[in-house]
Structures are given as C-alpha cells and as structure tokens.
Amino acid sequence: MRSRIIYEHLTLGTIPSNALYTDLSSYYDLMCADIDYQAQSSYVRRLHQLFGNSGKRHLDLACGTGPHIRHFLDFGYQSSGLDLNQPMLDLAKVRCPEADFILHNMCNFTVEQPLDLITCFLYSIHYSDGIENLKQCIAHAHAALADGGMLCFNSVNRNKIDNRSFVRHSAMHDESEFVFSSGWKYSGQGEQQFLTLSIEKHTDLEKQMWNDEHPMVAVNYDELSALLEPYFEVHIFEHDYEKILPWDGQSGNAFFVCVKR
C-alpha cells in the first residue's frame, strides 16, 4: 500500500503504509463525524431481520474505532470487531469494552464459533486489494458464518467512478479547523482503484496537510456477483439507509446482502 503525508511548513517525506489509520488514528472519528453510524447499523439490523437466521453473533470487518459495533451491542448483538491496525482497535476497545477485538487481515480470518452476521461498512470490502484477495475474503466470510448467516457490505462499481468527484467537510477540534476530503480514482482498466484522502489542519500559526492514497480492489457488479454467488444468495439494494429498495441497475453505489447457501 502506498501512502504519503506532507506537513506544510514542517517537513516533507514518506511514512509507513496505513498512515492515516496508525499515525493519524486519533483523527479518524473526526474525519467520519458526518457519517450516520446509527442509521447504517439500523438499516443492517432491518435487513438481518428480513433475510437472516435470527442469530445474534456478529463480526464487523475493518471495524476501525468501533462505532457500528457500539450500536449493534446496544441492539442486543454479541458483537466483535476485526481490523488490521492496533491503534484503531485500542480506540474501539474504549468505546466498546464489552466487545472482543481481533488484530487480523480480513482476507484470511477464522472464528472459533460460527457467526450469524458479518458486516463490512464504509466500502471497506475494497481494502481486499486485488481480485484474489477479494475471493479469499468472500470464502473466509462464508466459512465463518452459520447456516443461513448473512454477509453485508457496501460497494462502489468501478464502471461508475467519476474521478472528478469528491466529498468534503470541515470540523473544529482543540481550537483547530480540520478539512477532510476523499474521492475514488480509477484509470478505466484493471482491478485496482484508489481511495484518495486528505486532511488539512488550520491553526492561527500554521497549516498542516496530510495526503494519503490507498490502492483498493476495483470490480463491477457483474464481476462481484459472480464471485459471491457460488457461496451466497445475493440481494443488491440501493445505497439508501432510510429505505430498503432494490438496486436500480444503474447507480454506482449499492448495498450487498449475501445469505449463506
């Protein structure tokens, strides 16, 4: 994974991979302050009631600092989280002390007891960089689920990525203004796309900038469905956390509900 950080007025150089999630992990929740974690979690709970096996054993892949897990615990699930970055898990444990957390790669994880629900929010399924890694992630999720268990995740269709589009928001923290922006980049060919992330921190005396670029797996929905269907009954929905609507076949963001065969 390639990652670069620039400190304006301070230094210029490179840092290890996963910089945003380790060196800058304390900023992660601030970066995601505009995300409605409760709406996302409630949406999946409704889907699980409709399509799931009524069990309560839950694992959140790429759980980050655990905000989704907090809601699932409050819903009565026996929730746990998995992530590749220990600083994120340390923050998650503070937020969810009753949950178990696993430091591991989501492409080759195993569990001691079968699960009823596996979630992977915020397009994190794409961190399975490369089709082969994505295949492994799907296979290991299938193996970890109990009969009738459900895998849920959101995804972006590589054929619909607009390289000019990005989202941006700002927040105040410790008397500093932070500006966050992110966007997808895809060259138009191959199985790799990039998530570009930037953070600006403004104070009265200086400006700091962090810029990260993360390679992620690029798939279209026909390819993704073909990878899933040997293992799961696949349902695709519009990326709308307020309404459960079938995917219209056109939009570039969708939510996948996969029930173990």
Rank of each mutant, 00 (worst) to 15 (best):
S3R: 13
R4K: 13
Y7E: 12
G13P: 04
T14V: 14
N18C: 04
S25K: 03
D29T: 04
A33K: 15
D34N: 13
I35P: 01
I35N: 07
D36V: 05
A39L: 06
S42D: 13
L47M: 08
G55T: 09
G55C: 00
R57T: 10
H58S: 02
H71R: 11
F75E: 03
Q78A: 03
S79T: 03
Q86I: 01
M88Q: 13
L89S: 03
D90A: 12
C96H: 00
C96N: 15
P97L: 00
D100W: 00
F101T: 05
I102V: 06
L103A: 05
H104R: 06
N105I: 05
M106E: 03
T110C: 03
E112F: 02
F121L: 12
L122V: 14
Y127V: 14
Y127Q: 14
S128A: 15
S128M: 13
D129C: 15
G130R: 10
N133R: 15
C137R: 10
I138K: 08
I138S: 07
H140P: 07
A141D: 04
A144I: 02
L145Q: 04
C152D: 07
F153Q: 01
S155W: 03
V167Y: 10
H169G: 15
E177D: 09
F178E: 11
F180C: 08
S182G: 14
K185L: 12
Q192G: 13
L195Y: 09
S198F: 09
I199E: 13
E200S: 14
D204F: 02
L205V: 09
Q208R: 12
W210I: 15
E213G: 07
N220C: 13
S225F: 12
A226T: 14
A226L: 10
F232I: 06
E233P: 07
H235T: 12
I236V: 15
Y241R: 09
K243A: 10
V257H: 06
C258N: 06
